[in-house]
Design a protein around this nucleic acid. Structure first.
Lengths: 210, 210
DNA sequence: TAGATTGTTAATCGATTAACAATC
DNA sequence: TAGATTGTTAATCGATTAACAATC
């Protein structure tokens, strides 16, 4: 049950706070003021305080914020204190790249399986895990309590596969397919549209040449 | 020379317009009104008209927009009518995945080379192209008129490598390293912070469970 | 012409920044 | 206590939506 809806603009900034606080923590720094954070992160101190106060008063007047404590609290807000069970759908280059990237697992995002509908790929081993055929998805999702599916398949099949996954009980989709998924309310979709990102870069390049 | 600065919020929506218009075009649809686009894209017709009118009047009263023409115009705005020469720095799984993804090339983003500083990887072939050692970067960038570098290296070396690339004449960086790059004014950076994206998904999952 | 739909101005809404009283 | 810095309210800024006159 949530108190009040927090804007996605705020949520979008939390991972960056989390990253900088982690770095300060690693450097052994114990306390930080919103002004100091402002200086290194290039956002206003006011915004930092506003953002954090959406979730409660983590600071102390005259002192600032305790780095370790704030780091941990933001981690909790982001749900990093819980484990998530993921599967990857699509064992192409991108799917394999994500599957191999260990840093996600350190944050509690555990890849439990990887699927593909190409018989030539099924059975192959990636990081000691066998690529499974997509017919086994439903059973696997239900038996392994999978809550997040990573879609690294072509846009042509993504919409249909997403619907299937939702019907199997998936709660979140990390979508790398270049298509908008249509999912029921309550199912979370986070899109990573790489070509959109590249186009933005292209736009900014073409307008900032003097 | 630019007329007035256009907000990144608007720019961020252009690739999506472009995608939907491309689909309409492929379906053989010739004209579309802002209201029709609104219905299929789930944004207000008002926003569509406002966004487009930042760049000029592409429509016609009483008629709407010509799909093919608008598609082409947005493509031009995004700089997709020009070719970009890219190199990838970091021939790990992600670098290879991007290098292998042909759809970028269809939009004019041509991967000219891929580099790595691991001697075991250098010399390997990817799509018929040899992975080069990073010592060759400078010469390659200058000789091949490279304007965009894709950073798929660990955060530890990303900041330094970015600085080098800028000094070699790179104009844009597509940054997959989980660190903020500090580049001179006029150099464009587009970040793809995958773990930030995953954290946002995690947040939304944890708050939308009823 | 009448109908439709844009381009654009005005109104609203939300997000960011500034200011300052509360308080450690 | 005096100084520092938060938490929070108020002011500003920008982005989105609504409305409508212009016009095809």
């Amino acid at each position: 049950m949530e108190e009040k809806e927090i804007s996605q603009a705020v949520i979008g900034r939390l991972p960056r706070y989390f990253r900088y606080l982690g770095e300060l923590k690693d450097e052994g720094i114990e306390r930080v003021s919103s002004q100091e954070l402002s200086d290194i992160m290039q956002v206003t101190a006011s915004q930092i305080r506003q953002d954090l106060n959406n979730f409660g008063g983590f600071g102390q007047q005259g002192y600032g914020y305790n780095v370790g404590h704030l780091y941990e609290e933001i981690g909790k807000i982001l749900g990093l204190d819980k484990e998530h069970n993921l599967i990857i759908i699509g064992a192409g280059h991108l799917g394999q790249a994500l599957f191999n990237y260990m840093n996600f697992e350190r944050r509690g995002f555990i890849f439990r399986g990887i699927f593909d509908n190409n018989p030539a790929v099924c059975g192959q081993q990636i990081r000691g895990v066998t690529v499974r055929p997509m017919q086994e998805m439903e059973r696997f999702v239900r038996e392994n309590n999978i809550d997040i599916a990573v879609l690294t398949i072509p846009k042509t099949s993504a919409v249909e596969v997403a619907e299937q996954l939702v019907s199997y009980g998936i709660k979140g989709i990390w979508n790398f397919a270049h298509v908008d998924l249509n999912v029921p309310k309550g199912i979370q979709v986070e899109n990573v549209h790489l070509s959109d990102s590249l186009m933005k870069l292209s736009y900014n390049l073409s307008t900032h040449i003097y």
